[in-house]
Deep mutational scan, measured.
Amino acid sequence: DETGKFLVLALYDYQEKSPREVTAKKGDILTLLNSTNKDWWKVEVNGRQGFVPAAYVKFL
């Protein structure tokens, strides 16, 4: 159920650099879980949760 969740689009490829991050490919649609940090947003992609740089994604 996606009610109340926001989707964001990956603008660039991002390769995770730590276990707390997730890899995303340009064009991926990610479920935004938390955007309270202006630099790192928590997302879910391909069943995995983790952080990506906020500058790499935008709201749909």
Rank of each mutant, 00 (worst) to 15 (best):
W41Q: 01
K58L: 13
L7Q: 10
L11M: 10
F59N: 05
E16C: 14
F59E: 07
F59R: 09
V43T: 01
N46W: 07
Q15M: 13
W40R: 01
K58T: 13
E16W: 07
L9Y: 12
E2P: 13
N37T: 05
D1Y: 14
A10D: 00
F6G: 09
L33P: 00
T23H: 04
A10E: 01
S35C: 15
A54N: 02
S35D: 10
K26N: 04
T36I: 09
V8R: 01
V52F: 15
K25Q: 08
G50S: 01
V22D: 03
A24W: 11
R20K: 11
I29A: 02
T23Q: 03
E21R: 03
F51D: 02
V22K: 02
K38P: 14
P53I: 13
R20G: 15
K17P: 03
Q49N: 05
Y14K: 01
D28R: 04
K25D: 02
Y56T: 09
A54V: 07
K42R: 10
F51V: 04
Y12F: 13
R48W: 07
V43C: 09
R48P: 03
G47H: 03
F59L: 15
K42S: 05
F51S: 01
F51C: 10
A54S: 13
K58Q: 13
E21H: 05
K17V: 07
V52L: 13
P19M: 09
T31P: 03
G47F: 05
R48C: 09
A24H: 05
V57R: 00
P53R: 07
P53S: 06
L30S: 01
F59G: 05
Y12R: 12
R48Q: 07
V43I: 05
L60D: 01
A10W: 08
K42P: 01
E44D: 07
T36L: 09
L33H: 02
Y14G: 02
G27V: 03
A55L: 10
T36D: 14
K25M: 10
N34A: 08
N34S: 12
K25R: 12
E16A: 15
V22S: 02
N34E: 13
K5R: 13
V57T: 01
T23N: 04
E44F: 06
E2C: 15
T3S: 12
P53G: 06
L60W: 11
W41N: 00
K25G: 04
G27K: 04
E16M: 12
K26M: 09
W41R: 00
F6C: 15
V45Q: 05
R48Y: 06
D1C: 15
L7M: 10
L9W: 05
P53F: 15
N37W: 07
L11Y: 04
Q15P: 06
T36P: 03
V43Q: 00
L9V: 15
V52R: 02
D28T: 07
A24M: 15
K5D: 07
W41V: 08
Y14N: 01
W40I: 01
K25I: 07
D13Q: 04
K58M: 14
G47M: 04
D13H: 06
F51G: 01
D1T: 14
L32F: 05
P19G: 08
G50A: 03
G27F: 05
L11T: 04
V43M: 01
Y14H: 03
A54R: 11
G47A: 03
L30M: 15
F6R: 15
E16T: 07
L30D: 00
W40M: 04
D1G: 14
G47D: 04
T36R: 11
G4Y: 13
K58D: 06
A55S: 14
K58H: 08
V8W: 05
D13L: 08
V22Y: 03
L7V: 08
W40T: 00
Y12K: 11
K26F: 06
T3Q: 13
K58G: 11
S35Y: 10
K5N: 10
Y14R: 00
L7H: 09
I29R: 03
T36H: 11
T36V: 10
T31N: 06
Y14L: 03
N37I: 06
K5Q: 11
K58S: 11
L30R: 01
A55C: 14
R20T: 11
K17C: 12
K5S: 10
Y12C: 15
L7R: 11
V57L: 15
N34T: 06
L9N: 00
N34W: 09
G4D: 09
D13V: 08
D13Y: 10
N46S: 07
F59A: 10
R48V: 08
R20W: 15
N46G: 10
Q49V: 15
F51M: 06
Q49Y: 07
L9R: 07
L60Y: 11
V43E: 00
S18C: 12
V43S: 00
S18K: 06
L11F: 05
D39G: 09
V45F: 12
K26V: 08
V8S: 00
V45H: 10
F51L: 07
S35K: 12
K26E: 07
R48E: 04
V43L: 03
E21Q: 10
A54W: 09
P53E: 04
G4T: 12
Y56P: 00
N37P: 03
A54L: 05
V57P: 00
A10C: 15
N34L: 10
K17A: 10
R48I: 08
L33G: 01
V43A: 00
L33C: 11
I29C: 08
D39I: 14
G27I: 04
Y14S: 02
K5H: 12
T31Y: 11
R20M: 13
W40C: 06
R20N: 13
D1V: 14
K25Y: 10
F6K: 11
A54T: 05
Y14I: 07
L60E: 03
A55E: 09
F51H: 02
Y12T: 05
V43F: 03
D28K: 04
N34P: 03
F6M: 13
T31E: 07
K25V: 08
N46F: 08
K17R: 13
K17Q: 13
F59V: 13
E21T: 08
D13F: 10
L11I: 12
K42G: 03
G47S: 04
E16F: 06
G27P: 03
D13I: 11
K42L: 15
A24Q: 08
K26R: 10
D39P: 02
L11A: 03
A55M: 10
L7G: 02
K58E: 11
L11K: 04
T31G: 04
V45R: 07
V52G: 02
K17T: 11
S18E: 07
G4V: 13
V22I: 14
L60M: 12
N46M: 08
F51I: 04
A10R: 04
V52C: 06
S18M: 06
Q49R: 11
G27H: 04
V22E: 03
E21C: 12
N37A: 07
A54I: 06
Y12H: 09
T23F: 05
A55K: 14
E21P: 04
E2S: 14
T3H: 14
F51P: 00
S35A: 14
D28S: 07
E2N: 14
G27N: 04
V45D: 00
V22L: 11
K58R: 13
A10T: 09
W40P: 00
E16R: 12
R20I: 12
Q15H: 13
G47Y: 04
V52D: 01
I29V: 11
N34R: 06
R20S: 12
L9C: 14
L30G: 02
T31Q: 10
Y56H: 05
Q49F: 07
L32A: 02
Y14M: 03
L30Y: 08
L32V: 13
G50I: 07
A24D: 02
K38S: 11
A24N: 02
Y56V: 15
K42N: 04
A55V: 10
V52H: 01
E44Y: 08
K5M: 12
S18I: 04
A54H: 02
S35R: 12
F59P: 11
V43R: 00
P19L: 09
N46Q: 08
L9A: 03
V57F: 12
N46E: 07
G4W: 12
R20Q: 12
E21Y: 08
K58A: 14
Q15E: 14
T36W: 10
Y12E: 08
F51N: 01
D1F: 14
P19H: 09
T23I: 04
W40D: 00
L30C: 08
V43D: 00
K5W: 12
G47V: 04
S35I: 11
N37D: 14
K5C: 15
S35T: 12
A55Y: 08
D13E: 06
P19S: 12
T23D: 03
D39V: 14
D39M: 13
S35P: 06
V57Y: 03
E21G: 13
